[in-house]
Amino acid sequence: MIKKQLTALVNLAKSDNNIDKRELSLIYRIGEAHQLSREEIDEIIDHPGKVEKVDELSAEEKFEFLYSIIQLMKIDDEIINKEVDYCNMIADKLGYSYGAVMEMYPIVHKNLVIAHEKKKLQKRIAAFLK
């Protein structure tokens, strides 16, 4: 799951043709938290490929996946239409109905996670799973 998630994060980060250092930091932080080496993360950054077979993830994994995508979108303080479109496309691949990204957007913080808010959001967003 983590390699698929990092692939999606890298593709999002590259969507504006500029990977910001804050975006890279989040990508490394997530990869290292899942015991990936710097070399494995660098390989994904250099050759991300396509995001496939994410519909097979558990509901919790899908939520974490989408949460990290939205967090990365917000981290550089610049949100462009391509990024929003990409997040919506990933949400759809994960099995979320339209509106899931906008439901999560105001609650996901760009550089911190408030555990109780995240748990409440996870329960709310479950209604968007198809």
Rank of each mutant, 00 (worst) to 15 (best):
M1A: 15
I2R: 08
I2L: 07
K4Q: 14
Q5H: 11
Q5I: 05
L6Q: 03
L6N: 13
T7V: 08
A13R: 09
K14H: 07
K14L: 14
S15I: 12
S15Q: 12
D16N: 15
N17D: 13
N18Q: 06
D20L: 00
D20A: 11
R22W: 09
R22E: 05
E23D: 00
S25R: 12
S25F: 02
S25E: 10
L26N: 06
L26A: 06
I27N: 02
I27M: 01
Y28A: 11
G31Q: 05
G31Y: 02
E32H: 14
A33N: 15
A33T: 06
H34A: 15
H34E: 15
L36A: 00
S37V: 10
S37K: 09
R38Q: 02
R38I: 03
E40N: 02
D42H: 12
I44Y: 03
I45Y: 09
I45M: 10
I45A: 12
I45D: 06
I45G: 14
H47V: 06
P48L: 07
P48N: 12
G49R: 04
K50V: 10
V51H: 02
V51N: 02
K53M: 01
K53F: 05
K53Q: 10
V54S: 01
E56I: 14
L57V: 12
A59M: 11
A59W: 00
E60S: 13
E61M: 11
E61G: 13
E61L: 04
K62Q: 13
K62F: 09
K62E: 04
K62C: 05
F63Q: 05
F63H: 06
L66V: 07
L66S: 04
Y67D: 08
Y67Q: 08
S68M: 11
S68D: 14
S68G: 00
I69F: 03
Q71D: 07
M73T: 11
I75C: 13
I75A: 06
I75R: 14
I75S: 07
I80S: 13
K82W: 05
K82N: 15
E83V: 09
V84H: 01
M89P: 01
I90C: 00
I90T: 03
A91P: 01
G95L: 07
G95R: 02
G95D: 04
Y96E: 04
G99Q: 09
G99F: 08
G99S: 14
A100F: 01
A100E: 01
V101Q: 01
M102S: 11
M102Q: 05
E103P: 00
M104L: 11
V108H: 00
N111Y: 12
I114P: 10
I114D: 11
A115Q: 13
H116P: 09
E117V: 07
K119L: 08
K120G: 04
L121S: 13
Q122D: 05
I125C: 07
A126S: 15
A127N: 10
F128E: 08
L129Y: 01
K130E: 14
